[in-house]
Nucleic acid binder design. Structure first.
Lengths: 206, 206
DNA sequence: CGTTTTCGATACGATTAAGTTTCGCAACGT
DNA sequence: ACGTTGCGAAACTTAATCGTATCGAAAACG
C-alpha cells in the first residue's frame, strides 16, 4: 500500500520523535539515580546534559520530573525469579540469589532507597513501583513459605510476617553492610549461607 | 572572688550566648529531620523560623548546615541498653525491645534514614553518627552473641556476620513495614517474637 | 518544493535557599 | 555610664533549577 508501513497507526505528520533520544533520557535518568541522587536532587538539566539532549526534548515527552522517573523506574523490572518448586530450601536460595545479584546493580539498588525515603514526597511514584516491582516478588516469597508449611518442610507455627521480614531484612541488611565495606564482590554462597542459617536457627539442636 | 562564678573559664566579655536559643535550634533541627526531611531539604530559614530565632544566631554557632546536623544528631544518643547477662535470649529480647521502642521515635528513626542515604553526600556526618551511635550498639550485640556461643546457648558454628544482619535486619525491616501500615503502635511482644523465631529457626525440629 | 514536527541550544522569568551584612536593642562585665 | 557581644529582623548577593519560549536546522511527508 503505502511506501513505508512500519507502523499501522496513521503516523502523524512531521519529523518523528527520536527513539534514541528517548532511550538516552531514560538511561541518563537511571544512571544519575543510581549514582545516589534522590529525586529532589535529580535535575532535568543534568539529565539533558548526560543524555546529550535538549531540555525541550524531555519536556515534550514528560510533563515533569516525577513522570519521567515513574517511567524510568518502571523499566527496571527484571524477570521474576524462576523457582523449580522441588524444595523450599532450593527455592529460597534461588530467590535470594537473584536478590543478591540485583542488589549489586546500582540502578536497581536505588529503587529501594527511593521507595524507603521518598514515599511521602512522591506517593504516586512509590506506589507504582511498589505495585510493579515489590508486591509480585513479595507474593512469590510468601507462596514459597506457605507451601513449605503445607508440606511440612517448615514449622507449622511459623510467624509469617516475622519470617518475611527475617528473610528480606537479613539479605538486605547484609548486602548493605557488604556494600559499604570494600567487599563489593558479592560472596558467591551468601544466599545459601543466609537461608541455611535461618532455617537452622541460632539455638543448638537439642 | 568574682561576683558570679558559674564557670571557672574566664568568661569572655559581652552578652553571653543564650542556651535556650541553642537548645531551640537543635530541637527544631531534629523535629524537621524527624518529619522526613533529608539534609538537602532542611533549610536554615525553616530551622530559624521553627526555633523562633534569627539566622544570625545559627550561623554564629555553626559554620554551615552540615555542622549543625552533626551536633544535633550526636545529641540523640540514648543510653546503651542495660543487659542483665542472665541468658542470651533474655539479653537479645531486652536489646531489641529498646531498638523497637527507639524506632517509634521519629527523631531516632530519621537517623537511620540519613545514615543509609546520605553517606556519600555527607561522609563526615555519617561517619560521626556511625561512631557515636551505631558501633557501640553493634559491639554490645556482638558481645551477646559471642558469649552465647561460648556458653553453648547458641550453636558453635554460628555465621556471625549473617546472624548480626539477621537480627538487626529483621527488626528493622519489620518495623519499617509496620510503620508504613497504620500499625503505628508497636506490638508489645514483637522483640520477643522475632528473637524466638530466629532462635528456633524455620525448619521443624527433627 | 512546502508543510509539519522534532531536534539541540540558548535565553528567560520565577522561585528557592545559602550565607552575609546591617540595624537597633538587650544583656553582660567593669 | 561604657564597651563588648549576642539577639532577632530584614535586606542583600549569589547560585541553582524549574518550566517556558524562541531560534535555526533537520527529518519526515506529499
Amino acid at each position: 500500500m503505502s511506501t513505508t508501513d512500519e507502523t499501522r497507526a496513521a503516523r502523524p505528520a512531521g519529523r518523528p520523535r527520536s527513539a534514541r533520544a528517548e532511550q538516552a533520557i531514560i538511561d541518563a535518568t537511571l544512571d544519575l539515580l543510581g549514582e545516589g541522587m534522590n529525586i529532589a536532587e535529580l535535575s532535568i538539566e543534568a539529565i539533558a546534559a548526560r543524555a546529550g539532549v535538549g531540555k525541550t526534548t524531555i519536556y515534550r515527552r514528560w510533563a515533569n520530573k516525577e513522570d519521567l522517573c515513574v517511567d524510568a523506574l518502571a523499566r527496571l523490572k527484571s524477570p521474576l525469579p524462576e523457582l523449580r518448586g522441588e524444595s523450599v530450601r532450593e527455592d529460597l536460595v534461588a530467590y535470594f540469589e537473584v536478590v543478591v545479584r540485583d542488589s549489586c546493580d546500582a540502578r536497581r539498588r536505588c529503587v529501594m532507597s527511593i521507595v524507603m525515603n521518598d514515599a511521602e514526597r512522591h506517593p504516586r511514584l512509590v506506589e507504582r513501583v511498589r505495585q510493579a516491582l515489590i508486591e509480585p516478588r513479595r507474593e512469590v516469597l510468601a507462596a514459597v513459605l506457605r507451601r513449605g508449611v503445607a508440606t511440612g518442610e517448615l514449622r507449622a507455627d511459623l510467624d509469617l510476617p516475622v519470617v518475611m521480614a527475617a528473610l528480606i531484612g537479613t539479605v538486605t541488611w547484609y548486602m548493605r553492610d557488604a556494600g559499604s565495606d570494600g567487599t563489593a564482590e558479592s560472596p558467591a554462597g551468601i544466599a545459601e549461607r543466609i537461608v541455611d542459617q535461618l532455617l537452622a536457627g541460632l539455638a543448638p539442636t537439642a
